[in-house]
Amino acid sequence: MADIITLRYTVSPDDFTRAGEASSDVKNKLKQLGIAPPVIRKVSIALYEGEINMVIHAKGGEITVEVSPESIRMVLADVGPGIPDISLAMKEGYSTAPDEIRSLGFGAGMGLSNMKKYTDYMDIQTELGIGTTITMIVNVT
């Protein structure tokens, strides 16, 4: 494997049927690179939760995934409304998703806490009206 492999994706806004395409592609590429299945599973779940959030709350955005021999670093950047209260948003069960999204099976308020649970590092930078950037790292070794 080269030292660092970078994957970039644009997440389409308001297209719920396509949400998860980036996560699916990352999962397939990590399999091809021979990354251990438990690591792939953690990356897949965390990234998919983040991708779904970008579609539901932020009208899409950009995902960058850097794969190195030591870790997988995911950066999800959007220009959405921002998160007013991060500690409240991290609370299991808290959600601002509309009923329409709940009827599609999401918006149970598990997304951010699940992303933290499945990663070794997570950082949220957010500014109201400007956007949110979430960085997550899953250690490979």
Partner: peptide, 11 residues
């Protein structure tokens, strides 16, 4: 919906 398939795939 398609997200059921995606969810299963990720897990």
């Amino acid at each position: 919906n398609p997200q059921v398939i995606r969810t299963a795939e990720m897990l």
